[in-house]
Amino acid sequence: MKILEVKNLKKTIGKRDIIKDISFSIEEGEIFGFLGPNGAGKTTTIRMLVGLIKPTSGNISICGYDLQKDTENALKEIGAVVENPELYKYLSGRENLMQIARIRKVPKEEVNEVIRLVGLENRIDDKVRKYSLGMKQRLGLAASLLSNPKLLILDEPTNGLDPSGIIDFREIVKKAAKERGMSVFISSHILSEVQNLCDRVAFINNGVIKSVESIINNSMETETDIISLKILENINSNILSALDYVKSVKKIDDKFELIILSNKTPELIKYLVNNNYNIDEVFKLRKGLEQRYMELVEGGIR
């Protein structure tokens, strides 16, 4: 079941096209990353997803409810943590949650459950002004989970957290998604965290989604491989570039770094051997999210 479906979404502000005809979907229980540089359109997209601004055109569907035509039912299925959550600092963590629970008609048992889920049992009755940033993020996450949403939207949720706080938050999100069968949409600048957390990721730049790709065993499933190649003879890089399965060639010291179509390494080796080139080294570089980000968003190998 598709929890979120975005079709041909556009947003124009003045004469500037901010979001340019993007489409993607999120399946039930999936953790979906949304990556791009500052100004790429991430925040504008999120503001449309949570109903803060209307798209110029296109459609957003949440659990089958059209966000424009059936706003109330669509938004009932969403929980969100957008950067630093707004909290009453003079109240305790529990009192903050109870205020929200009363408005949403959420039973006390559910409040206790989310407190357990985010690991705040020992500090929930302290005043929020005594909380660390990590604890405030946990409380904000607990608040977003109170209505048991089908879709959790997180916009830069680990901003300002130290490494242990980032790891803790990641594990809490994984636990919440698993226990509740919840889908998660997360926008973040921390590529390593997205790689460790997400099932799929969309790369956006200049309002355009460049690619949507799967992450399997903390590595990217892509259409290309990056090969490191050392040849004993002198060879002009143009010879390698001319091969139809080679996308780009870069000389680094005495080696070549090539982007080639996936699973074409044997064909490359066969070509070199048949043309009497002696291969000293050849290996496939592990493709992490950072490398893929540089290819898609920054336009090449670094």
Rank of each mutant, 00 (worst) to 15 (best):
A40W: 08
L272E: 01
L87D: 07
K264R: 10
V81C: 00
R302I: 13
R200H: 10
L133R: 13
S241R: 13
E121F: 10
L9N: 04
S211F: 08
I13M: 12
T265A: 09
L289V: 07
V201E: 01
I259W: 02
I166S: 10
R286G: 12
H189C: 07
S188L: 05
L261G: 03
I226A: 02
V82M: 15
E213K: 09
E72L: 10
L285T: 09
R138P: 15
L146D: 00
N263L: 12
Y245G: 04
L268C: 04
A74S: 12
K89I: 03
E223I: 08
N96S: 09
V114H: 05
V81K: 01
V6P: 01
N278H: 00
N96E: 06
Q195T: 04
K69H: 12
F203C: 00
S23N: 06
K42G: 13
T158E: 04
I124Q: 07
K255H: 07
V208Q: 09
N84A: 14
I260R: 02
K11R: 14
E113Y: 11
D155K: 07
E109C: 03
T158F: 05
I3W: 01
F169W: 00
N38P: 14
E171D: 13
D168F: 05
L87Q: 09
V111H: 10
P85G: 02
Y131A: 13
D21C: 11
I172H: 07
V212G: 00
N38D: 13
T265M: 13
I204K: 14
K136P: 06
G134M: 09
Y131C: 05
L268W: 03
V297S: 12
G207L: 03
N148H: 04
A80R: 02
E257V: 13
I153G: 07
L145H: 04
Y245K: 12
F34A: 02
I204E: 05
V194R: 03
Q291W: 04
I209F: 03
F32A: 00
E27Q: 07
I269W: 11
K15C: 08
G51Q: 12
Q291T: 10
